[in-house]
Design a protein around this nucleic acid. Structure first.
Lengths: 220, 220
DNA sequence: GTCTATAATACGATAGAC
DNA sequence: GTCTATCGTATTATAGAC
């Protein structure tokens, strides 16, 4: 089904081309602005082919959500989709704390790839309020993303119970989504968003450390 | 222009009726699903009247955003719009910490009013990524909301510099938006969202306290 | 699998009377 | 300020050939 045999991998099957175009169009005009005709033109195929492959508009959105999630999974160099992001250093697992910060800040860089992935993901997430068929995929991606962040937190400080790690991870990932949204809206400069993210990481890590208060002042 | 002279205040001018209907319709079908015809029917007026009062669809959205913000301002019993919420105890300023928690959790209650306001606000916020004319109002509301939370944080602990209070407030309000979104999507039970919010408040308050590390263990 | 052509209609916006 | 009637077109989706 795919013709990808040459080094450059330029020849894609049209189904994939449609999904890539969908991500691009959604990032530029939103889910509401997604016209099947425009999408087809962008992908270089006919309108009818879109319906052939995805049934209807809703099916297209569902597949696009999954596609974006999978793409981010490869891009972040790790497990999760989530509010997807983009390339980054080929994964050098130095200190867990640094890796955690790297992972979370990966989604807050003003590059075309991050913008496109994050904008499209944010749009689809917002649509999910009214399109229940998107929820399962969102929930799945969210869980995976939380799990990964929780594991990184656990590598920084293994003492807290898993529930506490997961709670912190949930807060950090949800905050990231919120920051990303504000950034993309244009009411929050991306640098400020990163700074806030760093602050939250620090606060959460500190809070995890303070779970055993006796220990807190022992060193002092 | 308004006929509101009887105790029940039931007779509203049609412009207001349109805005209320807009909030309702957006909460039920999203900005994407807002059809001017349906809105008019919901408000009990003609389609043409909507255009007369608001010019076009975009103008309608702009005014609706402001309307929802103002309504939340009254509802929360305080200053801010923001990810708007609803009624609550007629504002008993007990302890600042409790007031802070009350304010933030006000937006995470599963009542028809909160759902409607939050859903509509979330939709309009998401739309703002592609409709720049909504940004100014969103930024204004966001600043006001942050200011209020920062002030409450300052009442809990006056020692940190204002920038630190504002940073914490920004994180808390952005997190609230994210939690609200996830709740409304249906991937996060409202009780769990509240729990996460409380955890974040605790972490931020603690982090503010630890800004002067020498002080931290003095009491111990 | 992929295309062209077209059906069917939903939707935003306006004209003009009252 | 408010209505009814209508216009023009943008969009989704399908039919049917290749």
């Amino acid at each position: 089904m795919t013709e990808c045999r040459v080094k450059e991998c330029r020849v894609k099957d049209r189904k994939t081309a449609i999904l890539e175009a969908a991500a691009r169009v959604i990032a530029h005009h939103g889910v509401r602005g997604l016209r099947v005709e425009e999408l087809a033109a962008e992908a270089g195929v006919s309108k009818a082919l879109v319906y052939y492959h995805f049934g209807d508009r809703a099916g297209l959105l569902r597949h696009t959500l999954r596609f974006i999630g999978d793409r981010a999974e490869r891009y972040t160099g790790g497990g999760p989709p989530g509010p997807p992001g983009t390339p980054g250093p080929p994964r050098a697992p130095k200190d867990a704390a640094l890796e955690l910060e790297r992972r979370l800040l990966l989604e807050l860089r003003d590059t075309p790839e991050v913008r496109e992935n994050s904008t499209a993901w944010g749009e689809l997430r917002a649509s999910a309020v009214f399109e229940p068929e998107l929820r399962e995929e969102l929930a799945r991606a969210g869980r995976q993303w939380v799990r990964e962040i929780a594991d990184l937190l656990g590598r920084i400080d293994p003492s807290p119970p898993d529930a506490a790690l997961v709670g912190a991870a949930e807060r950090l990932t949800v905050l990231l989504e919120g920051l990303s949204t504000r950034w993309l809206i244009g009411v929050l400069p991306v640098g400020h968003a990163s700074e806030l993210m760093r602050g939250a990481i620090a606060a959460e890590v500190e809070a995890l450390r303070l779970r055993e208060p006796r220990q807190a002042c022992a060193v002092a």
